[in-house]
């Protein structure tokens, strides 16, 4: 029991994150719960606007306190993160939780040499001397596969390619060996060959440091490549949670099944792709009661949905929101 408790790095329970739109607060993340364990890559997958990045920024506390509200509980090794003030958060960010951003150019300071940006994290979180910090930074650069660490140490971000910049971001994120890494679409801006390299690098680092990674992406291929557990997000809710095999081999929720079905496959030329009807409603117009995916599958009768959707266990660690998965079929297979 204790060992199990020791393995839990991050426990998120009933997290609600709301943004102010025209003076009213709307939940972008609506009642999300998840548990991140040691040695685990937890992928959160969903389309743009589903709240997956908001979930990530809520964990690291980077939201604007005036225009957003966080409710619920985020526990890092038992310590409550919701409601911490900026100074307390600074101690955790970087040291215990590292963050990798989507756009490596805007995440790096353009006026600061790359080396200084890496040592900066060490300066705030360790008692190392300057020489030690530099030595560590060079090791990190070497670790993330930068060919000329000494030279790169003195370069500015604009002198590096996109893949190299993302490697720098990764080296900053892991500088203090954090237990948790939050990666928000780290490979979206990169070419496929570079993406493959970055994925391999993240997997290696995760194994080496035994850390837990929350990996946010919209690319199901990347999820299949990297994740241990997957949470599928739609309209602010995690609609299906399971192991990577559950999600890809035995998907239950209509949204997961539709999404997997709309990937262009190797089939015949000119096959029609599966399309999910309708649109994701904007935050301010979203219906808050009932199953949120219901308007997009109108051929399923209302009686199949729950009034207040709850999680149903369909396998070991495999949960689905709402009962509509039991009777769901695609429109063309009546």
């Amino acid at each position: 029991m204790d060992k199990e408790k020791d393995n839990v790095l991050l426990e998120i329970e009933h997290l609600h994150t709301a943004f102010r739109i025209n003076g009213k607060f709307y939940n972008a993340v609506d009642d999300c719960s998840l548990t991140l364990r040691k040695n685990e890559i937890y992928a959160i997958v969903g389309e743009s606007g589903c709240g997956k990045s908001t979930l990530a920024t809520s964990i690291v506390g980077l939201l604007d306190p005036l225009n957003s509200k966080v409710k619920g509980s985020i526990k890092y090794r038992g310590q409550e993160l919701v409601g911490l003030n900026a100074d307390e958060y600074d101690k955790i960010r970087g040291e215990d939780i590292g963050m990798i951003f989507q756009d490596p150019l805007s995440a790096l300071n353009p006026l600061m040499r790359v080396g200084d940006q890496i040592t900066e994290a060490l300066y705030y979180h360790t008692k190392d001397s300057e020489a030690e910090r530099k030595k560590k930074a060079l090791e990190l650069l070497k670790r993330v596969g930068i060919p000329d660490p000494e030279g790169t140490f003195r370069r500015y971000p604009h002198e590096l390619s996109g893949g190299m910049r993302q490697r720098i971001i990764i080296s900053i994120a892991v500088a203090c060996s954090p237990e948790i890494i939050i990666a928000d679409e780290p490979t979206t801006a990169l070419d496929v060959t570079i993406q493959a390299q970055i994925i391999d690098l993240l997997k290696d680092i995760q194994k080496e440091k035994e850390s837990g990674i929350i990996f946010i992406t919209h690319d199901l291929g990347v999820v299949a490549e990297i994740a241990d557990r997957v949470g599928v997000m739609y309209a602010g809710q995690l609609v299906e949670i399971g192991s990577v095999f559950d999600i890809f081999e035995d998907p239950k929720h209509p949204y997961t099944r539709s999404l997997l079905n709309s990937i262009p496959q190797a089939g015949e030329l000119g096959d029609r792709l599966h399309v999910i009807q309708g649109n994701v409603p904007p935050l301010s117009e979203m219906k808050r009661s009932g199953c949120r995916f219901a308007p997009r599958i109108p051929w399923i009768p209302a009686s199949a949905h729950e009034e207040n959707p709850s999680y149903h266990q369909v396998g070991d660690g495999h949960y689905v929101l709402c009962t509509c998965y039991q009777t769901f079929h695609f429109q063309e297979e009546k």
Partner: peptide, 13 residues
């Protein structure tokens, strides 16, 4: 290029 495309079958990883 072909080798770098992620496969959607997690068993092949």
């Amino acid at each position: 290029l072909l080798a770098a495309i992620p496969d959607i079958n997690p068993r092949n990883r």
